[in-house]
Design a protein around this nucleic acid. Structure first.
Lengths: 210, 210
DNA sequence: AGTCTAGGATAGTGCTCCTATCCAACAGTG
DNA sequence: CACTGTTGGATAGGAGCACTATCCTAGACT
């Protein structure tokens, strides 16, 4: 398959494909000659994946690169690979770097309380959680921070379900794809459902009120 | 309070404050004279809110404007106001406009199954859900689409809890603020917890595997 | 009286994600 | 074999967003 066919069958422009190749998101086609290369189904798959992540998840190109790199590293275990994927997909929102150890302690406490014993002690996600907690406390949200307890079993059930869906009879790359798409697309799905539920419950409570 | 003091006490630059005023995110200070205006605590609050939404939620400035406008419209009920907030906060990710009615039906079915009877029949969120479902089906995710059933009670519990936290003894604007911050910051909180849970469950399942 | 600052307008910056153009080297076609 | 068209590679250009910097003059403060 030549580059123009690849473009046609994915709906991504030739210029964009070249850009992705330059950025290392897509391997160059197998060179048939100096001026002709061959692309295969792998390229189609990869390109579709990249577009879904960008279109639905607004994943920045740099994060996509990190994802690709993580898949490439064949020395890492599947779990380490997933860990890198999580790190890459945590969109860099600016949460304050926790000004004290207090919120970090709270974060660790939450993880412990949830029973997530396998989370690395130095996972960047823990700091991120601490940052978010700090924002919550600062914002004067009426939410009692201990209310985290409400979330934990629910979130755990969701994550367990999602992980359970992964088909581990396939190869590394396919598993990574499932993990990443699941994280991004099902994340959107989740937030979308949540907004719908908000609308419903808000109606019950505030429908007539001015 | 003059503009420079407002800038100092919120950490937002004077130039940015002027920009926000221009964009209608912040009302101009009360003019004391042709060349001097007075800003008060309301401005500080608003500015802090805007920064949290942008920093944590990466909410685009245009969406912030929509949020402000929704708050301003005093003819709408609290519920309508919340509805507009939801619409504004649905970050415009490009999900395909459902190519058939099939996914839209699935979406409606899910809403019905969840028991969210109060969701408007023409809520844009329904179409968004349909789009996401379409992406899920297209991606060859191993997730059985009926698996939505797993999510519904969990999401419903989360949303009900969050709505329950809103303190309705306060005024419109304060309620809106709680709603919006809750949606954005607690949304981040939720996704962060979910990533942690993913790490835990992935470790249990794939720790040793290459 | 002189310096400083506010407010308003407008232009420019930095970043990201493409998109367009140019080029020489082939490939396929008659 | 000539001709048209496409390719990979390089590089420049452009759109959109969220600011940021500059300029200006009326008025405040000392």
């Amino acid at each position: 398959m030549r580059i123009s066919e690849l473009a046609d069958s994915t709906g991504v422009s030739v210029a964009t494909i070249k850009y992705y190749v330059r950025e290392g998101l897509l391997s160059p086609g197998k060179k048939l000659s100096e001026r002709l290369a061959d692309y295969d189904d792998q390229h189609v798959r990869r390109l579709r994946l990249l577009r879904v992540l960008r279109d639905v998840g607004a994943v920045p190109v740099g994060a996509l690169k990190a994802l690709v790199d993580a898949t490439q590293d064949r020395t890492a275990s599947v779990h380490d690979m997933f860990g890198k994927a999580c790190d890459a997909l945590r969109i860099e929102t600016t949460v304050p770097v926790s000004r004290g150890d207090h919120t970090r302690e709270l974060a660790d406490q939450i993880v412990a309380q949830a029973g997530w014993t396998e989370v690395r002690a130095d996972a960047p996600e823990r700091d991120h959680l601490a940052g978010i907690i700090e924002v919550i406390l600062d914002s004067g949200l009426p939410t009692d921070p201990e209310g985290a307890a409400t979330y934990l079993p629910l979130v755990d059930a969701i994550a367990a379900y999602e992980l359970g869906q992964i088909d581990d009879t396939q190869d590394r790359e396919a598993m990574m794809e499932q993990m990443v798409v699941g994280q991004v697309v099902l994340g959107e799905f989740l937030l979308c459902l949540r907004r719908l539920a908000h609308e419903h419950h808000s109606a019950l409570r505030f429908a007539g009120r001015r």
